[in-house]
């Protein structure tokens, strides 16, 4: 039983780490603000989401699991809001030019 859980964890956390890597490469390589934001959301939403999914089987109790899931939800909320604000600022700068 614990082997199945460990395999699930390894698979999901590895997939999450891959999305973090992809998001970071995108952040460094993409040409402008909007495409960079697009890359970042992959790390926030999918990357962190998969890592949380991967850690859930290791959570000691239901309480710990709920805490992990709420961290993911809060990061998504903050990430989405900040992305919108940055994107709006970037577009205003562009039209001002």
């Amino acid at each position: 039983m614990s082997l199945v859980r460990d395999i699930m964890t390894i698979a999901a956390v590895s997939a999450g780490a891959f999305f973090f890597l992809a998001g970071t490469v995108g952040l460094l390589r993409f040409p402008d603000t909007l495409t960079r934001l697009h890359a970042l959301t992959k790390a926030d939403n999918l990357g962190l989401g998969l890592i949380v999914v991967g850690l859930l089987p290791q959570a000691g109790s239901l309480r710990d699991g709920l805490k992990l899931v709420s961290i993911w939800l809060l990061v998504m909320l903050a990430g989405a809001t900040v992305s919108q604000l940055i994107a709006r600022n970037a577009r205003q700068d562009e039209t001002a030019k």
């Binding site: 809060l74 909320l77 903050a78 989405a80 809001t81 919108q84 604000l85």
Partner: peptide
């Protein structure tokens, strides 16, 4: 806007 939305939700 989103900032006010976040400031009400969070």
């Amino acid at each position: 806007g989103v900032l006010v939305f976040l400031a009400r939700l969070l």
